[in-house]
Design a protein around this nucleic acid. Sequence first.
RNA 1: GGGCGCUUAGCUCAGCGGUAGAGCACUCGGUUUACACCCGAGCGGUCGGGGGUUCGAAUCCCUCAGCGCCCACCA
Length: 862
Amino acid sequence: MTTAPDRPTVDGLEAKWDQVWQRDETYRFDRTKSRAEVYSIDTPPPTVSGELHLGTVFGYVQVDAIARFRRMRGRAVFYPIGWDDNGLPTERRVQNLYGVRCNPALDYDPDLKIEADPNRKGRAPQRDVSRPNFLELCHQQTELDEKVFEQVFRDVGLSVDWNLAYATIDDRCRRIAQRAFLQNVAKQDAYIAEAPTLWDVDFQTAVAQAEVEDRPVKSSYVRLLFQRPDGSTVEIDTTRPELLPGCVAVVVSPDDPRYADLIGTELTTPLFNVAVPVLAHRLADASKGTGMAMVCTFGDNTDVIWWRELRLPLRSIINRDGRLRRAVPEWLSSGAGSFSSAEELWADFAGKTAAQARARIVELLTDASLVAGEPRPIEHDVKFYEKGDRPLEIVTSRQWYIRNGALDTELRNRLLRGAAELNWYPEFMQTRLEHWIAGLNTDWLVSRQRFFGVPLPLWYPIDADGVPIWSEPIVPEVERLPIDPQVDVPIGFDASQRGLPGGFTGDPDVMDTWATSSLSPQIVCGWTEDDDLFSRTFPMDLRPQGPEIIRTWTFSTMLRGILQHDCLPWANVSINGWILDPDRKKMSKSKGNVETPASLVADFGADGVRYWACRAGQGVDTAVDRGQMRVGRRLAVKLLNVSKFVLGLVSEDLQGGAVTEPVDLAMLRQLANVADRATASFDRYDYRQALDITEEFFWRFCDDYVELVKSRSYGSDDGARSAQAALAAALSVLQRLLAPMLPFVAEEVWSWWQEGSVHRAEWPTADSLTPQLAGLDESVTAAFDTAATILRHVRKAKTDAKKGMRWPVRLLRVQDSADVLAVLRRTLVDVQAAGTVAEVELVEAAEQSVTITLADEMPEQA
RNA sequence: GGGCGCUUAGCUCAGCGGUAGAGCACUCGGUUUACACCCGAGCGGUCGGGGGUUCGAAUCCCUCAGCGCCCACCA
């Protein structure tokens, strides 16, 4: 316990209290508590890649307020945090920062030393390094980044237990991710299959449906002329003429009378002269284009459906690098129109990018008069990998999948039930998850052809001909996890047998980063590693997160919970809003660099920034608003000053004394209601309303109550004792009510007169004020409002007369009902002192009026 | 194409069936010994448009418009 300084300030509170909290382990989880006494939070592990975005701080602060409330309510709060460092964002950051590129063919160089260069241009030439060297750099860089992130989180006062920190690439996470995956394999919830998948041609990896986004792209329709058996032509629109050599069929709607006679016949493709069948399918839309669609393997997801359902041949044109195949397609070999040979024709396309091939093919088609009219420019949505720069292609490849209900009604319904069983804050976010589940069209593709991730923990035997037997994976013993099949050798084999006939090969892929972060509850709660901890924390209480990862993180975590434990991993989901620029546009990168969390904390204090975040409701998109932060800072400063003042008025031995005066009792009665309403708000995760209610009362406490009673509180008579007891009780309650939102200033003022941390203090409710309210007679509950109203009249009279607040009032005349006057009479000491009123006249009458007569002059001050 | 959310004072937002609210901004006034990072007072809105339910609607229903977001098999 210290005393209030002469000139209290909010500056420097962040560093001061962070240090104390760290020293005292204020937020350490008490793992002796039972499940019912624990409140466990599944905090999102932020992606560690560069600057921590203000939007991240925004959401985390809101959750922290909830965590602090639960802690003060007596729960043992289990509040871990982790870093999501595995995955493509880190790879890309390392590539750019160090100027390297992973080349798995190279050998490890133990002497390699490369320094990060933040000023490197992202496109500058890259140096090839081995896979182990590349992974080393990834680990090295994420360690640095995580330190920076931790400091920001400490600066804004997150009350996480840093002892529980984890990283999604660390040993424990790799072990748990691999173990869970192996259990999925054992239960046949995971399977390997060769199938068309969305493919990013730059990153050279398959991607999952959840990582795909639509982007508008300028394109154009080209109207191709296909030839009927009788030599006449039909017109077919396409935006991807370069796929024409991969055309396997033409589909029409079964209900389209225009083409009914064509169904079952064959057409010949322009330029390439390949015969393709005309087939009917329900997904063909008579209203799109000319009503005929050419099916290529593959242009889009519909092509995949047609290919599968109509049992069409596979004619792959695009390679995994996004370029057209080099070898002449065998189905062209029969001849190619005006070209003397298929070879001659294909020479124009082999190795070209899709865009180059498109331009060339349109040229050739136009020259040969095989198109109708000019290309018509359009803008349409095209699928992109969310982190990619070029449109996704669809290629056939062998990949691992985890069942997610897309192809399985029973699982899908179980997931939909789960979405409905969760308590959502705000409620409408539930719909987003339900729509996502209902719209899934493929199982979850979890293998990625990347490097910095959790390896798929599998090997495959190689048969006598040197071909891997994909259907018979070799599974490691769980004690060996985590393993890297590129380095580790399966039992029963020798390292020298790697890659040889009769030997083995390690799975070269890593898992989707969500395959690890979807296990965050299992990771933090110690699944399979600490059964005691697991039983005290799982299923968890709260999953807080951003709206943009409902389809990925919320969904996949729920899926893993159901597959692994047949239960939901948490009971409540809270979705924060989106951060917008001050002009209400989505927060841009450039702005993000100006309005960094650190700079805003420097300008307004952590409590100011937190106030802004806590003023925004759950799920409500919010603009960066320096004005709100300034208001928050002002509130913090006010709490410092009023605390200092009140503590100066209150003598220590009177703090717990009896409250007897009507104004004091009435104020405490109102405060008791405030505490209960704030508690109820927090109970339904509405930190915003709790702050609103508390803040509103806090200002009335400062401006009206303290002003009314400060004069009476001097001295030691009964009136003074009552005022001091009420001031102390109210101050204690208000400091605690504000602590979840303004933890630094609340801790500071608490330390001036209380032992221990305010964040470990008991949360105030109406019950906690019962002793002070023992003398309450319900007839005086209006005393505070009555006195404050009269004081307001007096202030207005002085303001209207352009006088200062100390200007004396000669006569205050109040006309009102007997009941009101009776209450008012008992508050006159305070009203007269606060309003500098000399004489009072109370008149009983049906009509209400207040008349104030100011003195003619200001008396000389002694 | 489908869905979700939003539209209230100049700005940022609360209210979500019973006579329009807060903060900021603005105007005016004030050395009130906790605070000038202050105090006091004031100005300011037919609650996006239209229709309906109701004794009564910013609040419920329908519809239209604008903005934002999510999803979609994007010929």
